[in-house]
Amino acid sequence: MIRIGGVLVSPGEGGVYGERMIDGYRVWDPYRSKFAAYALLGGERDLAPEMRVLYLGAANGTTVSHVADYVEVVYAVEFAPRPMQDLIEVCRHRRNIVPIMADAGRPELYAGIVEEADLLYQDVAQPDQVAIALRNVPLLRPGGTLMLMLKTRSVDVRLSPQDVADEAVRALEEGGMRVAEVLWLEPYHRDHAAIVCEAIK
């Protein structure tokens, strides 16, 4: 991904959410995007032009729009009607985003319209975040990558964030994933961890 003077940027048309521009590139704010935080904190996974991305928890399309600047297509799944309205507006300016209004926990509802994904990116703040991710893994291509942005406080506030992350790693491994990387997203996102996995096939 592109950096200008240490600032993460993306190469698409600006004006999506009032983001700053540098030399014609959009500034990708790590405080507004967990993917940007992951990249700036040294995350090992990159985006490539030929990638197909299945994005769960698209919200209003802020991060989706930056990802779309880098990849071939983004299948953006969002359940809530109000954010979906904003996401559809983002899609008017980025033809490589496919908005899908559906429950990410029920991938059978959209499996028929999604191409095999190179990257499954999940940012769904639910107690069953890991289970939702595993239900969507069959939509990954062999050797594809799962990036789970784990919001530990949404899983169990009684446990420490580290304990929640450790349990998530165990569950992912039991679900047939090889965990390659766990990266905490402080100072940008408190009690969030990016868990990067590959399917064992």
Rank of each mutant, 00 (worst) to 15 (best):
50 E>N: 09
51 M>N: 07
53 V>S: 04
53 V>Y: 02
53 V>P: 01
55 Y>G: 04
58 A>W: 07
59 A>H: 03
60 N>K: 11
61 G>L: 07
63 T>K: 00
63 T>F: 00
64 V>F: 01
65 S>M: 04
65 S>P: 03
66 H>W: 03
66 H>E: 02
68 A>N: 01
69 D>Y: 02
70 Y>S: 09
73 V>E: 11
74 V>A: 01
74 V>M: 06
75 Y>L: 09
77 V>K: 02
79 F>Q: 11
80 A>C: 04
81 P>Y: 15
81 P>M: 12
83 P>E: 12
83 P>S: 11
83 P>A: 13
84 M>G: 04
85 Q>P: 02
86 D>L: 14
89 E>A: 13
90 V>W: 00
91 C>K: 05
92 R>P: 05
93 H>S: 11
93 H>F: 13
93 H>W: 14
94 R>C: 01
97 I>V: 15
98 V>G: 10
103 D>A: 08
103 D>V: 03
104 A>F: 01
104 A>Y: 01
105 G>T: 04
106 R>E: 10
108 E>R: 08
110 Y>G: 07
110 Y>F: 15
110 Y>H: 07
111 A>F: 06
112 G>P: 06
112 G>N: 13
113 I>Q: 13
114 V>R: 07
114 V>W: 05
114 V>P: 01
114 V>F: 11
114 V>C: 09
115 E>L: 14
115 E>C: 10
116 E>C: 08
117 A>H: 05
120 L>A: 06
120 L>Q: 07
120 L>F: 05
121 Y>R: 06
124 V>S: 01
124 V>W: 00
124 V>E: 00
124 V>H: 00
125 A>T: 08
125 A>E: 01
125 A>K: 06
126 Q>Y: 03
